[in-house]
């Protein structure tokens, strides 16, 4: 049972069904969506606000190093459009704080 957790498998499959329904559903409802500006804007804003809500508590818990690292990574990502560079530099800041300072 250790290597084959039924609940985990079911969750993964459900997550897949949800995701697929959204992909296929979007194609089916197509133009109907664009008539509801409010809903369209809501959906447009969600990825950014969700990811932000995800990171805020962790950054605050990490304290000042977390804040500096996140801010620098965010600015670099925005300026260079390169997430990997932002990742490397953001991680370097955290690692230095945790191991040296």
């Amino acid at each position: 049972m250790d290597n084959f957790d039924m609940l985990a498998i079911i969750i993964i499959i459900l997550a897949g069904i949800i995701t697929y329904s959204l992909r296929f559903g979007g194609l089916l409802v197509g133009n109907m969506l664009s008539k509801h500006k409010f809903v369209e804007n809501l959906i447009k804003a969600l990825p950014g606000t969700l990811l932000l809500s995800f990171i805020v508590p962790s950054i605050i818990s990490e304290g000042i190093p977390g804040g500096i690292s996140a801010l620098v990574a965010g600015i670099i990502a925005k300026k260079t459009n390169n997430v990997l560079i932002a990742l490397v530099i953001g991680m370097a800041i955290i690692i230095i704080f945790r191991n040296i300072l």
Partner: peptide, 22 residues
Amino acid sequence: YSVALDFVIIIIFTALVASFYD
């Protein structure tokens, strides 16, 4: 912990959030 693996996801999401900045 010392290689800050728990923070990788936070940085990646921070970078993604920045790209959604409108």
